[in-house]
């Protein structure tokens, strides 16, 4: 297989499009080697939360817009970028939920941050939101001390 694998999709700002978009993402991630596939549900869930944020918060109810998804898969890492052109909101400053209590909201960004190794927020040109998450998936990407067997 040639690496990186790249995929792109444009979605409408409609919560009803979420299930199909998740299925598309899972299909794309089937390119991962079998031992890496356990990460697929994590990435799909994180994507679902980002997509919901675009529809519900960046655009808001009834506002038409588009959400652009770009996926790069390398032998070590998955990078997923979700971009909208709605209201800019820096999710990196959203308060995390108190996990000792039952909360009716606030788990979305918490899950994204928990399921990704890195999350980066941008508002290119001051318009909308672009969140890029990275998730390592390959055993070869796990840190090994110099000189350890199998390193290099």
């Amino acid at each position: 297989m040639d690496w990186p694998q790249r995929f792109e999709k444009t979605l409408p700002s409609d919560l009803g499009a979420g299930a199909q978009a998740r299925a598309w993402l899972a299909d794309c991630l089937a390119c991962l080697p079998e031992e890496s596939r356990p990460v697929i549900p994590d990435v799909v869930l994180a994507f679902g939360e980002l997509f919901t944020n675009c529809v519900r918060h960046a655009y808001g109810p009834g506002v038409a817009g588009r959400v652009e998804v770009a996926l790069w898969v390398t032998p070590e890492e998955i990078a997923l970028s979700v971009q909208d052109y709605g209201r800019t909101m820096d999710t990196t400053h959203v308060a995390l939920p108190d996990l000792s209590r039952a909360n009716e909201g606030g788990y979305g960004i918490f899950l994204v941050r928990t399921l990704a190794d890195e999350v980066e927020f941008e508002a290119p040109g001051g318009i909308g939101n672009r969140v890029t998450l990275r998730r390592r998936h390959s055993p070869s990407s796990v840190f090994r001390p110099e000189g350890a067997a199998g390193s290099g």
Binding site: V44, L45, T52, N103, G105, Y107
Partner: peptide, 16 residues
């Protein structure tokens, strides 16, 4: 097969 944060919120609402 799948639950997101909105689904979790729904279950918490019913729990309360």
């Amino acid at each position: 097969d799948y639950i997101d944060s909105s689904g979790l919120g729904a279950l918490v609402k019913l729990l309360k």
